[in-house]
């Protein structure tokens, strides 16, 4: 009986969440610009025989979620406070850079929230009626420079992205929105933080990426591990390596997130 009650309460909470949807946005700089769909050649092809990924139209947050925004979320979802979070959902470093369980510290307010687990990021986006972007969506938007939607073959742009990786992660993070918006109107995809994606647990790349051979069908249903393409696309390869090193409860000083949502057809 008690179990049933708990269950009912859970469903009620879910219903509440669904009601409180929606992003406030101004027409000039929408908080979550609409991204047109398209066909895209991913570093992680969906299957060995399939080169292109079809991206459906979606919305993506213009900037990563800030500490301030995350603190606001915690006030209504206290089960995600660092002093209350279940260990199964976050490691010991979760929000460890904050001054107190609900206080990120003044200097952190405008900085992207980091030290968040995949579970916490997912919960945040769900609370906004949104979700984490999928890897292919993230990769599709992150391929854009300020001029081109797919700038991946531009050596100068590639080198510019790589420069972030040529700095150690010991300095403070910048505030969000500091980089130039790309051709999709999205900022901070490079040069600020790593970002969680919805299917972070589905990268299906070998922990030893040097293994290039095809599937071990005894381990995997289907076709086995994905082979990484575009071997010179270092910035993207590093993203995948980072995501595949992180378990869903792990947090890191440079791993944050932003949310995405589906675009309803006809709107």
């Amino acid at each position: 009986m008690k179990k049933l009650m708990r269950h009912r309460r859970y469903l009620a909470a879910l219903a509440l969440m669904l009601v409180s949807l929606g992003h406030a946005e101004s027409p000039d700089t929408p908080a979550a610009p609409a991204i047109p769909g398209g066909s895209f050649e991913s570093v992680l092809p969906p299957a060995p025989s399939v080169k292109n990924v079809r991206i459906q139209p979606f919305r993506l947050d213009r900037t990563p979620v800030t500490n301030e925004q995350f603190a606001t979320f915690l006030r209504t979802h206290p089960q995600w406070r660092r002093d209350r979070v279940a260990k199964v959902f976050a490691d010991e470093q979760y929000l460890s850079h904050w001054q107190a369980p609900l206080d990120p510290g003044q200097e952190n307010l405008r900085r992207p929230v980091v030290h968040v687990s995949w579970f916490a990021a997912t919960a945040y986006c769900e609370a906004q009626g949104a979700r984490l972007p999928r890897w292919h969506e993230w990769e599709y938007v992150a391929a854009a420079s300020d001029r081109q939607r797919d700038a991946r073959n531009d050596p100068a742009w590639r080198q510019q992205i790589l420069s972030w990786y040529s700095r150690s992660g010991r300095g403070p993070l910048p505030a969000v929105g500091g980089t130039t918006a790309n051709a999709f109107g999205i900022q901070d995809l490079h040069g600020v933080i790593w970002e969680w994606v919805e299917d972070a647990g589905g990268m299906l790349v070998s922990s030893d990426n040097r293994e290039q051979s095809s599937a071990d069908v005894m381990r995997f249903c289907g076709e086995g591990a994905l082979t990484m393409e575009q071997k010179e696309n270092y910035a993207t390869l590093m993203r995948i390596a980072m995501l595949s090193s992180m378990k869903a409860r792990y947090t890191s000083a440079t791993m944050g997130f932003r949310c995405a949502s589906d675009v309803r057809t006809g709107s």
């Binding site: 299906l204 790349v205 070998s206 922990s207 030893d208 040097r210 293994e211 290039q212 051979s213 095809s214 599937a215 071990d216 381990r219 995997f220 086995g224 591990a225």
Partner: peptide, 11 residues
């Protein structure tokens, strides 16, 4: 068990 993800290779 994460080695379960190591697919093939280096055989």
């Amino acid at each position: 068990s994460s080695a379960a993800l190591l697919l093939g290779a280096c055989t």
